[in-house]
């Protein structure tokens, strides 16, 4: 699985678990409009850390949480293990 497909799968999985309707995951979709809430994003990030063995947010204290889905994917694609 690519990083992107793993992320897409996790968004879908967490949306199902939390009974949320997920918007189509285009790159310019704002995460706050995706249908997921803060808790869902928290779970997605925790699961991705286990699956991809990266936590892009731990690299620096100043990593801002991304605004769009494309930025979110980019953050993981460019994260160092």
């Amino acid at each position: 699985m690519t990083v992107r497909s793993e992320i897409v799968a996790q968004f879908a999985q967490v949306a199902r678990e939390h009974d949320k309707a997920l918007a189509p995951l285009t790159d310019d979709l704002e995460l706050l409009d995706s249908g997921l809430d803060s808790l869902c994003f928290a779970v997605v990030v925790a699961r991705l850390e286990d699956l991809l063995e990266v936590d892009p947010f731990s690299a620096s204290e100043d990593v801002l949480f991304p605004v769009t889905f494309g930025e979110f994917v980019g953050l993981y694609e460019h994260a160092e293990k």
Binding site: S38, L39, A42, V43, A46, F65
Partner: peptide
Amino acid sequence: AKKNPVVGAIVV
């Protein structure tokens, strides 16, 4: 607790 960048901590 597990540290989390969105909500501070989550439950594991």
